[in-house]
Computed example of a mutant assay.
Amino acid sequence: MNKKMMYYIGVLIVLVIILLLVKSKESKYIAKDIKYIKVDSTQISKIQIINDNDTLVFAKDGDWQIVEPITYPMDSSKKKQLLKGLSALTIDKKAVAENKESHSKYGVDDSSGIHISVYKGEKLVNDFIIGKSSNDYSHSYLREIGNDKVYQNKENFYYQVSSPLKLWRDKTITNIDFEDIKTVTIKVKNNEYSLLFADTVWVYKKGKSKFPLKENIAKSIINKIAKMRAVDFIDNKYNEYKDDLANPDFYSSIELVEGGSVKLKGFLNEKKYVIQKDDETETLFEIYEGTVKGMDKDVDYFKKQALSK
């Protein structure tokens, strides 16, 4: 190897060393992501969210439930989404702004931001405001209560916590397995019929008409009642609706194999049915009109779905 070649190799080695040193120094100043929530999601005992719609408090007492502004079971998917979102919440190490005048720009001022408080036991471990979404909706902004610095959080957490109360509530009205049902009676206006399990088949019965039915047809009708979910809730207004509920447009009774029954009744109100479950008066439910329409089938429909002899 001649001297000229050795010279070029030496220069190359020096350049590589310089490049590595520069990158090493740069890495010290590159902002790194910081995990924001100070406790594991399994240790969180209470979460308060104050948004434009409500002041919401969720508490863990065995399972998670809403405790303010009402006491009610919490929607399982929203619960998982919230806890996962808090656990994954990260912010850039470097603030995007450091003065109070910037708060309204990023939506983290007291009037426009969403205030979130996270507790471990009775101890407040995180208290912060989530601001508006970025222009590309890929992330939002965050400010710690008592601190003027504004940080970019790596996810768009705003949309996870801006929901109104009704979306946080468990939508379940009934959740009964098909195999646990013995008889269902359905009445929609003047159309009343029963579906009953006899021996090994489901049977349609209305007046003198009685014949075995395809199981998938019986199941599709019954599950509309047995797996009924609300689209909204009516709290503490039973007296306003009791006269209409006394003369319902819709009625159903589910008789269970192991004994007992579940009864539902309701009336049409502006394209939704107001539903009462059993004799509960504290909370009424709203379901879509189409759910009840799907049960309003005449005898000719069921004859076409009868089991072949």
Rank of each mutant, 00 (worst) to 15 (best):
4 K>N: 12
5 M>I: 15
6 M>R: 13
6 M>D: 03
6 M>V: 08
7 Y>V: 13
10 G>Q: 10
12 L>M: 13
12 L>W: 07
16 V>E: 00
27 S>K: 12
44 I>L: 06
45 S>D: 08
47 I>W: 01
48 Q>G: 14
51 N>Y: 05
53 N>V: 03
54 D>N: 15
57 V>G: 07
57 V>H: 07
58 F>Q: 08
59 A>K: 14
62 G>R: 07
62 G>I: 06
64 W>T: 09
65 Q>L: 13
69 P>L: 08
71 T>G: 03
76 S>V: 13
84 K>N: 14
84 K>L: 11
89 L>C: 05
92 D>L: 11
98 E>D: 14
99 N>M: 12
101 E>V: 14
103 H>I: 11
109 D>E: 11
110 D>Y: 14
112 S>K: 15
113 G>N: 11
114 I>T: 09
118 V>I: 14
118 V>Y: 06
121 G>L: 12
125 V>H: 09
126 N>W: 07
127 D>F: 03
134 S>H: 07
134 S>A: 13
136 D>P: 01
138 S>L: 10
144 E>M: 13
147 N>R: 09
150 V>K: 07
160 Q>L: 15
161 V>R: 01
163 S>F: 12
163 S>K: 14
167 L>H: 02
168 W>R: 06
172 T>W: 01
173 I>A: 06
174 T>M: 10
176 I>G: 10
176 I>Q: 09
177 D>L: 14
180 D>F: 08
188 V>Q: 00
193 Y>V: 01
194 S>C: 02
195 L>V: 02
195 L>I: 08
197 F>L: 08
200 T>F: 04
205 K>V: 07
206 K>Y: 00
209 S>V: 05
212 P>Y: 00
214 K>H: 10
214 K>S: 10
216 N>E: 13
218 A>V: 04
222 I>V: 12
223 N>H: 01
223 N>I: 04
224 K>E: 09
230 A>M: 04
236 N>Q: 11
237 K>F: 00
238 Y>H: 08
240 E>T: 04
244 D>T: 02
247 N>A: 15
248 P>F: 10
259 G>F: 02
263 K>Q: 12
268 L>Q: 01
269 N>R: 05
269 N>A: 06
271 K>H: 04
273 Y>L: 05
275 I>E: 04
286 E>C: 08
297 K>N: 11
298 D>M: 13
298 D>K: 11
299 V>G: 06
309 K>Q: 05
